[in-house]
Amino acid sequence: MIVPLLLGLPVVLLFTYWGFNLTDIAYSKIYGKPMIVHDHLYLKNLNTDDIRIIARYSSFYNKLGAYKKRIFKHRVLMFINDKQFIGLDGFEVTRDAKVLIASVAVMLSFGMRNYLIESVNKIIIYPSPYFSSINRKYHLGEFNPLLKTIVFSWSDFLAGFQHNKSNINLGVHEFAHAIYFGSLHYSDSSSVLFFNGIKKIDALLHTETYIDKLSETNYLRKYAYTNKFEFFAVCLEHFIESPLQFQEQAPELFGIIKQMMNFEVVDVSNVA
């Protein structure tokens, strides 16, 4: 009877997976966070040079405890292995570039069990702002959901690390679009929580008095009010770079985003 048992094993695993997902979604609806986030059985490590780069540029990583730093490094490696990196206009895709891009993605998805941001397969990097033949304008970055591709101007991507109090961070901005899009098409607990947060933000955006009061603070740059997608991306930049001010200026919005991202710590701040 060994063969029938073996044949039945994938079915058992499939039902177990479905059962876990249903339980996880139910748990997230009750408690506002996934039941399990870091479910890695084996944690792979990065080389010394990779770790040095992350420690130099990522204050988020530096604030983590020892075990979660191991998870962060594992996720960075898995993200790098999962994506195709392409350099254009003479840009050479170095290991450091891959690590830095992956560290931004992993930071944003650190509170999620499905952390690879599946709405992205390719990452294209130009050395500087690039010209688009479609709208005849220079771009700093973009996310194309149909092609599952993120594009960065490397000089502007790096500026997000060098000026981390400016509330302008190209890496955060474009990955915010990718995570937003993914929440519309996936049904895991993190995507469900994220999408529920989007609905709450949409409700705020349709409240004229709220938007008027928020815009009067001049905390968010004007580009945030272009549309709901840009609003979230700009909000996430502020959430990462000036969380204390964000919490002070827009506590309700801050709380929604914090729950969406399931952040236990917030970058460059002491907010719990």
Rank of each mutant, 00 (worst) to 15 (best):
D96G: 12
A26L: 06
I25A: 14
F231P: 00
F20K: 01
K29C: 11
V37K: 05
L214R: 00
E252T: 08
K63Y: 04
Q247A: 06
Y138W: 11
K73Y: 15
N45L: 02
F15N: 01
S109R: 04
N196R: 08
K33G: 13
K222R: 14
Q162W: 11
S103A: 12
L204C: 01
F239R: 10
N62K: 06
K258R: 12
T226I: 08
V99N: 09
P145T: 03
G8Q: 10
H38T: 04
L41D: 05
I150D: 06
I101F: 02
I198T: 05
I51H: 09
L146C: 13
I117A: 06
V192D: 01
L9S: 03
F152M: 02
S59G: 12
E92C: 08
K148W: 05
K33Q: 11
Q247F: 09
I101T: 12
I2C: 13
A272H: 09
K44G: 06
L158V: 10
N135V: 07
A272W: 04
Y219W: 03
E216R: 15
I123C: 06
I117H: 01
M1A: 15
G255Q: 09
V120K: 05
Y67R: 07
F232K: 13
N270T: 04
S155I: 05
N81D: 15
Y31L: 14
S190I: 09
L204T: 00
T48P: 06
I36S: 12
E248C: 04
P4R: 07
H163N: 08
R221K: 10
E252R: 00
F263H: 05
K148D: 09
P4L: 14
F195K: 07
A272G: 12
A97M: 04
L22Q: 15
K68E: 13
H74K: 09
